[in-house]
Amino acid sequence: MQKSLRIGQILYTNVLPVYFYFDQERFEDRIEFIRQVPAQLNQAMARGEIDVGPISSFSYAEHASHYVALADLSVSAKGRVGSLFLFSKKPIEQLDGAKIAMTNTSATTVNLLKIILHKFYGYEISYVTQEPELEQMLLDSDAALLIGDDAIQAVRNGGPLHVYDLGELWHQFTGYSMTFAVWAVRKEVLAEHSGLLADVHASFLASKEKTRQNTGPLIEYVHTHHGGDMQEWTRYFQGLQHDFGDEQRIGLEYYYRCAAELGLLPAPATVDLWQAGGRQTNTTLTR
């Protein structure tokens, strides 16, 4: 028998503040968590196998007519992200005409890299998609893109490579924040489960706020389960934003316009927000 709400969770540490204090026992058998990497969650949401959860911002735009987004939840950053890296054998200024290996776990970031290299640098690049294993990716390519905990581990391992943070590059060229994931809801779920969805949304927001007020337990948990230095993890979570207000929406909708300009999306998208009591429809803001 299907649970009332099937909720996605990205298998990366960057979403943990939204889930860390989530009161799962309160919902007993009314919800089910499905934990996957972003590309898998994107596909499961599109197929209707997940009702609500974080998906790549790019995937939201691809299916915007079928989704709304939960208000005030995202994975965003204004500047350095710390988990979205281009690893290159040569400086980025020398990558015109290069071959770049892209992780198969991402949608937003692979297209962000294309926007940065094609729109802002004016480069022509060839791309291949591979499993997120840096050494293998670089055997036949000039550079490789990794995201999430794979990227964090690769930076930790070091090596003689040029490393570029994509959030930092985006902010350098645009001045905007960048939103990598939003918490999407399939529209057909709203009418049937609006009350339960409101409670789940409130629990996500409460977890986010409790983590913001005291990051200590989260940092200790991540350090224990993922290794690394506690100060490194503290800096990482301080650089992430899990809100979704005007600042995040403006940056994201500019990203959508850039993607449409390059033919990565058929048209620019806007983000339609939902919160308890009804939806909030946002209009596009021009740059």
Results as ranks from 00 to 15, higher is better:
Tyr12Asp: 08
Asn14Val: 07
Pro17Ile: 04
Val18Ser: 07
Arg35Met: 15
Gln40Ala: 13
Ala46Gly: 15
Ala46Ser: 15
Val52His: 11
Ser56Gln: 11
Phe58Asn: 08
Ser59Val: 10
Ser65Ala: 14
Val68Ser: 07
Leu70Met: 13
Leu73Trp: 08
Ser74Ile: 02
Ser74Gly: 10
Lys78Tyr: 12
Arg80Leu: 14
Ser83Lys: 04
Leu86Trp: 06
Leu95Val: 02
Ala107Gly: 03
Thr108His: 04
Thr109Ile: 08
Leu112Asn: 01
Leu112Ala: 00
Ile115Cys: 03
Gly122Asp: 03
Leu134Pro: 11
Gln136Thr: 14
Ser141Phe: 09
Leu161Asn: 04
Glu168Ser: 12
His171Leu: 11
Gln172Lys: 13
Gly175Asn: 11
Gly175Asp: 12
Met178Gln: 08
Thr179Glu: 03
Val185Ser: 00
Arg186Leu: 00
Lys187Glu: 02
Lys187Tyr: 05
Gly195Met: 07
Asp199Val: 08
Asp199Glu: 13
Phe204Tyr: 06
Ser207Gly: 06
Thr211His: 01
Thr211Ala: 07
Leu218Glu: 01
Ile219His: 02
His226Trp: 12
Gly228His: 03
Gln231Tyr: 14
Gly239Ile: 09
Gln241Ser: 15
His242Asp: 11
Asp246Gly: 13
Asp246Cys: 13
Glu247Gln: 14
Gly251Glu: 04
Gly251Tyr: 01
Gly251His: 02
Tyr256Pro: 03
Cys258Ser: 10
Cys258Arg: 06
Pro266Asp: 11
Pro268Ile: 05
Val271Gly: 05
Trp274Arg: 01
Gln275Arg: 10
Gly277Lys: 08
Arg279Asn: 09
Leu285Gln: 15
